[in-house]
Write a protein that binds this DNA or RNA. Sequence first.
DNA 1: TCGAGATGGTTACAAGTGTAACCGTCGATT
DNA 2: AATCGACGGTTACACTTGTAACCATCTCGA
Lengths: 151, 151
Amino acid sequence: MPDSFDLESFLPYRLNRAAELISLSFSREYKQRFQMTRPEWRALAALGSVGRMTATEIGTHSNMHKTKVSRAVAALEERRWLKRRENETDRRVEHLELTAAGLKAYREIADLAQTYQASLEAALGKGAIARIEAGLADVERALLAGAKGRR
Amino acid sequence: MPDSFDLESFLPYRLNRAAELISLSFSREYKQRFQMTRPEWRALAALGSVGRMTATEIGTHSNMHKTKVSRAVAALEERRWLKRRENETDRRVEHLELTAAGLKAYREIADLAQTYQASLEAALGKGAIARIEAGLADVERALLAGAKGRR
DNA sequence: TCGAGATGGTTACAAGTGTAACCGTCGATT
DNA sequence: AATCGACGGTTACACTTGTAACCATCTCGA
């Protein structure tokens, strides 16, 4: 049964495997320490680095489904790491921003993330990560370009 | 608020985003056409390319959790795309193999996958995918090496 | 000014997932 | 042969997720 197809060199599979592995590896670093889910961490990261944002903006920025954002924001609010501020001119919109406690948490985890990435860089050699990210950007560009016609 | 941390260049995030995007893009190709979930497709791919395997082997080969494998196998069996054969010497083990129908389905989807990858190669230029996969392999190697100590 | 449709955001529901506990079998030790 | 731990595989449970429906508000054109 000679089959030239090999899962091992199929890009969607390879990307997923690597992503799962690295996700697991990094989430171990903060899941227990901060009791936070990945969507929450992403929302926190977006708010921490960009500043005040709306839920929709968080969604596009960190590319999460709006229900995920909604739940992550609710969780962060519950923890008093962010507060909502209403928009004067459009009452559908809510501006979100981190509280002092939220900002503090953000800084700690961002630190963790930088250390993590630095250790990866040390292991892989300088520039390797940049090359990978460039490759990923190419893939994303190709996918999004191809999707236009299909929508 | 000067923060040098940027989610956009954080590898776990970048990998996940790319993986989600490509997964979505390819799964559209078969989810509707074959009514199959990703774990089922992975198990099918493993069985189709390797031949007879046990559930545990499928798990390591396509690196899926054993409950995922168990459910995927049950689904494929339900659809009569695979059958179980008992091991003479060890009755815990079940050898799994595709039926004629299963093999046929496998060939069709493998075909789809190859076409998909070819179109990516066409869009990105020859060799780009190989470079990315090499980079991913480096990352995985680094992660697994680092994990040894931590286990 | 009054709709019709678009948009920001939330939520009910169904499906997929991992953890942990479980069953049956095997192998080694006694 | 009896026992104990390891192993292959399944399942109950809780939790996460996306889909679709929903509410409230806004916008634009008749």
